[in-house]
Design a protein around this nucleic acid. Structure first.
Lengths: 254, 254
DNA sequence: AAGTGGTCTAGACCACGTA
DNA sequence: ACGTGGTCTAGACCACTTT
C-alpha cells in the first residue's frame, strides 16, 4: 500500500555499480589516474570483492579501465582508432609495402590452423610461410599478426639459407613479402570476430591469456584464388577498427 | 636436480578446463546438444562451480557454447558470417534500399548519444530522426541498429502526422529512408569496436545486459558532410562480420 | 616485504523457462 | 514445482610488481 509503481525488476548489483563507477570516471577522474584498490572499493560500496570485480571487468572490456596485476587499476585513455581498410596497404594493397604501419618481426615454416588451411585450399599439414608482424600505437602494442603464404604463391623465393634463425627470420620474412608484391592483387576481403587471446598472443599484447581480442582475417585474392591469408589479433579493450569503405575517393572529413 | 625443464608457470584451472571442454566439444558433442548442468560438470571435474563457470564464459564468448537461464547450456553452431561491407546496400549504398537484409521497425525523434552528435556535427540536445532496424539470421536475432538522420539531411520529409505511434512509426521510418535515397552518397566509412549490450539492446538480441557485442558505426557522407550515422549492435558470440573490401570486382570465390 | 590484481572455494539465494 | 543458469558472499591463497 502506498508503494508507487516500483515493481521494476531488481537491477543486479554489479550492473548498478558499473553505472555508478562509469559516471564517477567521467566526472571525478583523469586519464591515467589510479583508482583505490579492489578491497577498498568493495568495502566503500558495501559489496563483496567478487561483485566489484564483475563491474570492473565490464568497464575494462569497454575500454574505460586498465588493470594490471601487481600495479593497480587506472583510468584508460579513449580507444585508439586503427585503420584496417584497404587503403592502408601499399600501391596494390599488399601488406608490407610503402608506409606500412606494421613491423615485420620474423618468419617460420609451419602448418597453418585448420581454418586458414581451408581458406588457402591446402592440406592441413602442409607447412606454409608464416610471417609474424606486430603493430603498436603510442608505445603500446595493439596488434599481432601472422600472414600465411603457401609456397606456391611465391615460387621465386630462394631456398632457405638455414642461417641462424633469430636474425635471418626477419630477412626471410621480408623476402616473402617482396615476392608477394610481384603478384597482381585482385582484391581482398576481411572478416572481424571476437576471440580470446591465446597464451602467446597475450604475452605479445601485454595482456593475460583469454583477454578479449578482435580477430581480423584477411584473404588476399590473386587470379581468383587465395594467395595469402592474414590473421591479425587486436586488443579489444584499446582498439577501434576503422574501415574506410568509401566507394570512390576517401572523403573522410575531420 | 633431476628435474627437467618443467618449471613452467602453473596454468590456471579454468584455462586448462576450457581446453579440455573445447576438445570434448569437438569430439564428443553435436551442435545443439545440451551439456550436463553446471553443478554436475563442476563436480565431475572436481572444481568449484565458479571456476567451471569461468571456463564456460570463455567458451561462450568464443561462440562455442550457448547458455540460457532456465534452459541449459547447448553446443553452439559455427558463427554466422554477416555482410556489412559497402556492397550490401542498394544501388548507392544507402540503407533500406533494394534487397536490404535489415527489417525496419520504427521511428523516433530523439537526441542522439554524444558520440553520434559529434559525428553529425549537431548540438547534443538537438533531436534527430532515429530509425530503428533489426536483422535476423536463421530465425535468431543477430543485430539491432539505430540510424540517426538530422532533419537537415531530409528537408523534403513531410511533417509528422502524429497518428498512433505504433503503426505509423514504421511508415515514418520508411519515409525517412526514402528521402535519404534521393541524396547522392559520396561514400561511407565504418568502425568496429567491442561493447557490452545495454539493457534494451540485450532484450532485442535475446541476451542478458552486458553481453559482448560488436558495435559497428557507419558514417554516410554526402557532399563532404556527414548526412547520417548508423550504430549497429551485433551479437559478438554468434556473428562474424564480413567486409568485402575488394578494390575492383568482388571475386569472392567460394 | 608489502601491496596489487588474479584465482579459487563452498556455500546461499534469485530469476527464468518449462512442465 | 522443479531445474536451469545468474548473482552474491566472505573468505583464502597465489602471481606479480614495486619498494
Amino acid at each position: 500500500m502506498g508503494t508507487t509503481t516500483l515493481e521494476t525488476v531488481p537491477e543486479p548489483k554489479y550492473w548498478h555499480l558499473k553505472t555508478v563507477l562509469s559516471d564517477a570516471l567521467d566526472s571525478e577522474f583523469a586519464v591515467g589516474e589510479i583508482l583505490p584498490n579492489e578491497r577498498e572499493l568493495a568495502a566503500r560500496f558495501g559489496v563483496a570483492r567478487a561483485t566489484l570485480r564483475q563491474a570492473l571487468e565490464q568497464l575494462e572490456l569497454e575500454g574505460r579501465l586498465q588493470r594490471r596485476r601487481g600495479v593497480g587499476t587506472t583510468v584508460a585513455p579513449p580507444r585508439v582508432g586503427v585503420d584496417v581498410g584497404p587503403a592502408q596497404g601499399g600501391a596494390q594493397g599488399w601488406p608490407g609495402s610503402a608506409a606500412d604501419v606494421w613491423h615485420t618481426e620474423g618468419h617460420e615454416d609451419t602448418a597453418p590452423p585448420a581454418a586458414v588451411a581451408r581458406l588457402l585450399e591446402t592440406a592441413e599439414d602442409t607447412p606454409v610461410h608464416a610471417v609474424r608482424r606486430s603493430r603498436t600505437s603510442g608505445g603500446q602494442p595493439v596488434a599481432t599478426e601472422v600472414l600465411y603464404v603457401p609456397g606456391a604463391s611465391v615460387p621465386g623465393l630462394p631456398a632457405d639459407s638455414g642461417e641462424d634463425t633469430e636474425t635471418s627470420g626477419v630477412a626471410r620474412a621480408r623476402a616473402v613479402l617482396r615476392e608477394l608484391h610481384r603478384l597482381a592483387l585482385d582484391g581482398q576481403d576481411r572478416s572481424v570476430e571476437l576471440g580470446s587471446a591465446r597464451a602467446d598472443d597475450a604475452r605479445r599484447l601485454d595482456r593475460l591469456p583469454g583477454a578479449p581480442v578482435l580477430v581480423v582475417t584477411t584473404r588476399y585474392v590473386v587470379d581468383r584464388r587465395t594467395a595469402a591469408v592474414g590473421v591479425a589479433t587486436f586488443r579489444a579493450d584499446t582498439c577501434r577498427l576503422n574501415f574506410a569503405d568509401t566507394g570512390a575517393d576517401p572523403v573522410l572529413a575531420g
